[in-house]
Design a binder for these strands. Structure first.
Length: 487
RNA sequence: GGCGGCGUACCCAAGUGGCUAAGGGAGCAGUCUGCAAAACUGCCAUUCAGCGGUUCGAAUCCGCUCGCCGCCUCCA
């Protein structure tokens, strides 16, 4: 059994067979950079990051391209509002997006082209479309003739005639059909522009992805990803453009679409005012908790973002890293001994089978936590019997490493995780207070003194006082450890 | 109106024809601990929105009903 993926084009899971041996060309629609990215962008980026990592893990030679849409109406509008050049605004949010991606542990794709760096190819494809009779020019605009496309509506399951009758599209008299869409837009005064055979103008939205795909990956590709909302019209239009420009079909062999992040069961939208930015979410929670939350459901299902979900994810992560820490402390050999992971096929292959089944990360996470439980059990037993049985533990460590390599979680040093956790936690209980750490540590030392003197009443008072502040104490063999309560 | 999806315990969430319905969070009890915490052990869905059908066998397939959501317009 190999990898199977759900293909939006056919509506079912299919065996994944790349077009050329083990080479995979993959393209994912990136953000339009006119504002900070929200957790919906995070979900798409993380979902396809896992796809990318897993394909490489399965030894495919993957070339992954994700674009930045750095020129469009929203960017121009926002730039005008802020009184800055559109290019500068776009650059600012490209940088912000990259920072967010790094925080989330999203690997950089092999190519990250910008629309504005691909104008030459966009013009070339547009010209080809005109030459082949699929597009027409009106007053410096160029439109694509949807009715000329073969198989239009196949991806989204739409029928052209029904689309037209129910169209809510503003009627532009210059288009010969309301369904036609712009490949090239003549620039209005004050807007950015590029020289073209049809005059000064800028690209339409859909064409840039077709052009960047061709430029960086080729005329046809294996995987194309994006959010579910891009299926229509964006991806439908991309297919029409690319296939009619190159004469090669299918443009994309496997279409993969991720589900939405909802807030209170409703889609995030500017009009509802319920957008959750990545950085706002990361103010109080570790980035790994956000990533774990995103990977705890299947990538195609809708997920509901809430503070509680993030807290649950954080609690789960703490459980994981506490266990890892225990192994490090109590059975260090397990960390260093090389264990042949495939020597324990039944426990290991279940994670491969889960991933092979359309990237079932939720199931893999379940398996990882089952192993967390085994590890703790072994450690308890070792403690009771005073011996270090590390072979099984080294298998578990290897399993964590393998799963972590394609999930992009579970692969920090425990100390680093707890450090980040502490930082986020402290910022919640004392937003601007400095010296809080010293204060806590002083109290902890005082309590240890009290305990040594068997003054348990004072010790308990100090513990209660700290708990009120949101600090939890744990008395371990190595001394008292404090941490910030989740909330 | 057209197209698509979903409904699994207190919450989140895997499982899509056949072993005891994963896992996380919360809760309850026990072990450990000065007491806690953590960890471990046990408990927590004879049942998968409801009804009917197919089948030796269904949470999983089919039909209907109810409820929720998305796309059809810029959107991850």
């Amino acid at each position: 059994m190999g990898l199977r993926v759900y293909n939006s084009l056919t509506g079912r899971k299919e065996d994944f067979v790349p077009r050329n041996g083990n080479k995979v060309a993959m393209y994912v629609c990136g953000p339009t950079v006119y504002d900070l990215s929200h957790i919906g962008h995070a979900r798409s980026a993380v979902a396809f990051d896992v796809v990318y990592r897993y394909l490489k893990y399965r030894e495919y030679k993957v070339t992954y391209t994700r674009n930045y849409t750095d020129i469009d109406d929203k960017i121009i509008k926002r730039a005008a509002e802020e009184g800055m050049p559109p290019a500068e605004l776009a650059e600012r949010y490209v940088k912000a997006f990259d920072e967010d991606m790094e925080a989330l542990g999203v690997l950089a794709p092999d190519h990250r082209p910008k629309a504005t760096e691909t104008i030459g190819k966009i013009i070339e494809v547009t010209q080809t479309l005109i030459g082949r009779g699929y597009a027409y020019v009106v007053d410096g605009d160029v439109y694509y003739s949807v009715r000329k496309a073969r198989g239009y509506g196949r991806l989204s399951g739409k029928n052209i005639d029904e689309l037209e009758s129910g169209a809510r599209i503003e009627v532009d008299e210059r288009k010969s059909d309301p369904l036609d869409f712009a490949l090239w837009k003549a620039s209005k005064p004050g807007e950015p522009w590029w020289e073209s055979p049809w005059g000064k103008g800028r690209p339409g939205w859909h064409i840039e992805c077709s052009a960047m795909c061709m430029e960086w990956l080729g005329e046809t590709i294996d995987i194309h990803g994006g959010g579910k909302d891009l299926i229509f019209p964006h991806h439908e239009n991309e297919i029409a453009q690319s296939e009619s420009a190159t004469g090669k079909a299918p443009y994309v062999k496997y279409w993969l679409h991720n589900g939405f992040v909802n807030i209170e069961k409703e889609k995030m939208s500017k009009s509802l005012g319920n957008i959750m930015n990545i950085r706002d979410a990361l103010r109080d929670h570790t980035s790994e908790a956000l990533r774990l939350f995103l990977l705890s459901s299947h990538y195609r299902s809708p997920i509901d973002y809430s503070e509680d979900s993030l807290k649950d994810a954080e609690a789960a992560l703490e459980r994981f890293y506490k266990t890892l820490q225990r192994i490090e402390d109590e059975c260090h050999e397990a960390m260093t001994v090389e264990y042949c992971i495939r020597c324990n096929p039944d426990r290991f292959t279940s994670i491969i089978e889960a991933m092979d089944d359309d990237f079932n990360t939720a199931q893999v996470i379940g398996i990882v936590f089952r192993e967390v439980n085994s590890a703790n059990r072994i450690l308890d037993e070792n403690r009771a019997q005073g011996k270090a049985e590390f072979l099984d533990l080294s298998f578990i460590i290897s399993l964590f490493k393998e799963a972590g390599s394609f999930l992009g979680i579970f692969n920090k040093r425990p100390a680093d995780y707890f450090k980040e956790r502490e930082k986020k936690g402290l910022s919640v209980i004392a937003r601007d207070e400095t010296g809080i750490k010293e204060e806590i540590e002083l109290l902890v030392r005082q309590r240890e003194e009290a305990r040594k003197g068997k003054n348990f009443r004072l010790a308990d008072e100090i513990r209660a006082k700290l708990l009120e502040k949101g600090i939890i104490l744990e008395d371990t063999a190595k001394g008292t450890v404090w941490s910030v309560k989740r909330n």
